[in-house]
């Protein structure tokens, strides 16, 4: 057992740690959620992380995006993630993809992955990603944030949860987010992902809604 994963033991079995090293995950987005997802997956010890984002860092990202700093302003988020990966855990195979997830590239981007993590910031891209996951038969771990609130869910192929939580006509009016909301949401997603990848019992199709202002966790569906 690699010493760097020793403290995983007790929470995970040695066999589960070895299983995680065989898994490939796709992270859609390297911004607020994506930066923390990548950090947690690197330290957890998954085998391969593919992370896509076509954006570059801007000043308004600095209040919450782990990979942003005054030094990375104007730089590719995916490339910043690759530098972080090489620094934190060079044993993880990290594939940076400086592209947005689109209708045209989604199927190719997620091909061969064991799980897809949603760190996107808009409803349209989430619908594209969810459809691609269903077509490729890959589970998607949804995550989203707004202000003091975070939500996460494991969506199995064929489940229409994304359409139910973002019905036609609904719009995102607030871009508010605080420094602690993305890591909280990412933690829920990576915990769910760990259970999924290690084959532990898991309730899928359930939406976990966290309110950090009132300290409430509600589960729906």
């Amino acid at each position: 057992m690699d010493e760097r994963y020793i403290r995983n033991l007790g929470a995970l079995t040695e066999r589960e740690c070895i299983v995680l090293r065989t898994k490939t995950v796709f992270v859609a987005g390297c911004g607020g959620l994506g930066g923390y997802l990548i950090e947690m997956l690197l330290r957890l010890g998954v085998g391969t992380i593919c992370a896509a984002d076509g954006d570059v860092f801007e000043t308004s990202n600095l209040n919450r995006q782990l990979l942003s700093s005054p030094l990375t302003l104007g730089r590719s988020k995916a490339e910043a993630a690759a530098i972080r990966a090489a620094t934190v855990n060079p044993d993880v195979h990290f594939v940076p993809i400086p592209q947005f997830v689109t209708e045209e590239n989604a199927a190719e981007l997620i091909r061969g992955c064991d799980a897809v993590l949603d760190a996107l910031d808009n409803i349209q891209a989430r619908r594209i990603l969810a459809r691609a996951c269903t077509q490729a038969d890959i589970p998607m771990i949804h995550g989203a944030i707004c202000a003091w609130n975070a939500q996460a869910a494991v969506i199995m192929p064929g489940d229409d949860l994304i359409d139910r939580i973002y019905p036609e006509g609904v719009s995102l009016n607030s871009k508010a987010s605080l420094s602690f909301t993305p890591p909280f949401c990412a933690a829920m997603q990576v915990a769910l992902c760990t259970r999924l990848l290690t084959g532990r019992p898991l309730e899928t199709g359930r939406l976990y809604v966290a309110d950090l202002l009132d300290m409430e966790l509600t589960s729906l569906f």
């Binding site: 994506g34 910031d121 975070a150 973002y166 809604v209 729906l220």
Partner: peptide, 8 residues
Amino acid sequence: LFPPVGGG
């Protein structure tokens, strides 16, 4: 009633 939560 739940509002849309969609940031990333």
